[in-house]
Every structure is written in structure tokens, then in C-alpha cells.
Design a protein around this nucleic acid. Structure first.
Lengths: 148, 148
DNA sequence: ACCTTATTGAGAACGGAGTCTCATTCTCAA
DNA sequence: TTGAGAATGAGACTCCGTTCTCAATAAGGT
């Protein structure tokens, strides 16, 4: 779940990432990407600040926001929106999946389970609602909180 | 979808609503409840201000917020959270359902469709995630925007 | 009708997410 | 090695949803 192979981001030019031409490879940028790659689920900007900050010494919140925006534009990461939560980000290329939020620790995890809502894609529901996409979040207890 | 029978709110004491003992029935409160009852889906505080304000002459934003909080505590309405949207409210007693958000007009509607995620309730997913609830939002085009 | 007290309106104030500024630092192509 | 310009850090600032304040108003029990 944290291998470079998964997202296709491997040794290439400069720092080792696949980034647009005029986008430089800085230690901060690398740390942010690494933090997102190693996380069990999408991270909020503040979580990115914490985790990437632990990897790379100094890191400002503005830098995190700037990079998240830049990397999203570059298609390296995608924004994830959960109900009643601030925006989160995760690396692209992980295919269609949904998230699980623990009621206890409030952590958000990526699920491997097959999508139970796929059948509705492209369907027009009674009432005339044409479905083009969906957002599903499961709630409950994560493995750790269940055990404790 | 706008009948009083549906939510069980009918002529009873005072102004006509079923409200806790020390909660007074004011014209503002009644307008707010009516606005929520007649809406095709959950409303944001500002939408409540607009709609209830159209019913009842003067209405302040603070009054709307106060009443939404009070009515929620009283169990008359429930908060609805959609991804990347501000909190909305709808009357209680409409059973399990999900919402549809139009990509074009951005309106949010209540769906009558049976829940495709029900099968996951109570299940423990591979990985050890114990499902206790879920949030599903469908996106696409509403009847009106589809026609236009 | 009267009195107690919940409720209201208008606007000031708050809080947290996200953005902007700008002097300084760093990347990397030449 | 060097220079152009992308990137950074710290904090001020903006935005906007929500709450607070307080004097005036109005439910509703008696």
C-alpha cells in the first residue's frame, strides 16, 4: 500500500518523481508525496503537515497547501471529500474505491472492498435522476479500535 | 412529500406542532418547519432563511440557526451532511434514504430508491472494519436539468 | 389582562480553513 | 559555477459559516 510501484511513481528524472517540466523536486514536495503514499488513507492538509514534517525537518502550512494544489493540478494526487470533514488528499492511480471512517479514532482508511453501488452508474432513477457518479463512506470501528 | 401526515406533525396543541413543553410556537418556528416539510430535499440554513422568510415576513439568520439547533435537539429535524457541502436539515421520520445532488443546478434531492448498501450493515469487512453505518450520495443530473 | 420568560432581529464577533505577501533559499539548466 | 526563477516559511489576512449580545417583542399559563 506504500510501494512506489503501485502509483507508478519511480526513479525517473531529478528527485525521482514524475513531475511536470517546470515543477521542481524539493525536499518538501518529496516529503509530502511520501507521506501521502505511506498513509493508510487520505490525509487532511494538517495531517500532511505532521507526517511530512516528521520526514522533512521544517515545513510550513502554506507550503503544504500550495503543494497539494499544485500536485492535484499535475494529476499526482486527488482530493477526497467526506461528509462533515475537511478536504483530504490521496495519490492517484489507486482505482475506484471507497473509504471507511472510524467512529472512535476518527481515522479514515481506504477500502479494498468491491463497490456495492456500481450497479447504479449510468442508470436513470425513477423520478428522472440520471446517475453519473456517487460517493460512499462507511462508518464503524477500525481493526485497532475494535480490538481495544 | 410535503404532507403533514408523512412526518406525523399534525394539529395538536398550541400552534399545531408537536413540540417539547417549554418550546413556544412562534410564527418563525412554524415557517421554518413548513419550509423544511415542503422542500424536495434537505436545506441549508441560508435556504431555510429564504424559504421560511418567504412564508413569514421578517426572519433573521440567527433565528434560523437557533431554531435549527433547537428543533434538532427536540428530535423534530435531523442534520444531513453531504461531501463538500455545508450542513443541511430535513424533517425526521422519513425513513432510511439517500440524496441526489445535481451537478448542474447544485440542488439536493431526497431519493426514494431502495438502499444498495444495506447488505453491508453489521458486516465486518476483510481487514477487520466493522460496518455500523454508511453515507451515500449520488451525483448527476436532476429531472429539470436533464430536460433543459 | 397580566406577568414571566422564551424568542426574536440586527449586527458584531468568533473560529477554522485556506490564501496571500515578501524576503530568503534552493533547484537545476546552461 | 552561476543566474533565473521556482519554491519556501512565517505570519498577516480573507472568507464564510456559525454563534453571541442585548434590547425589544410576544407566547401562553394564570
Amino acid at each position: 500500500m506504500s510501494s512506489d510501484a503501485q502509483s507508478g511513481r519511480a526513479a525517473e528524472g531529478r528527485g525521482g518523481e514524475r513531475l511536470p517540466p517546470d515543477m521542481r523536486s524539493t525536499s518538501q514536495r518529496r516529503a509530502i508525496l511520501q507521506a501521502l503514499d505511506e498513509a493508510p488513507g487520505p490525509l487532511t492538509p494538517h495531517q500532511v503537515l505532521e507526517r511530512a514534517g516528521a520526514i522533512q525537518g521544517s515545513l510550513g502550512l502554506a507550503t503544504v497547501y500550495r503543494n497539494l494544489a499544485t500536485l492535484e493540478e499535475a494529476g499526482e494526487i486527488v482530493a477526497v471529500h467526506l461528509p462533515n470533514e475537511t478536504r483530504r488528499y490521496e495519490p492517484t492511480g489507486r482505482g475506484h474505491h471507497h473509504h471507511f471512517r472510524c467512529d472512535n479514532c476518527e481515522g479514515v482508511f481506504e477500502l479494498a472492498t468491491t463497490c456495492p453501488v456500481a450497479v447504479l452508474e449510468g442508470v436513470t432513477l425513477p423520478g428522472g435522476f440520471e446517475v453519473r457518479g456517487h460517493a460512499l463512506t462507511l462508518y464503524g470501528l477500525c481493526p485497532r479500535c475494535r480490538g481495544a
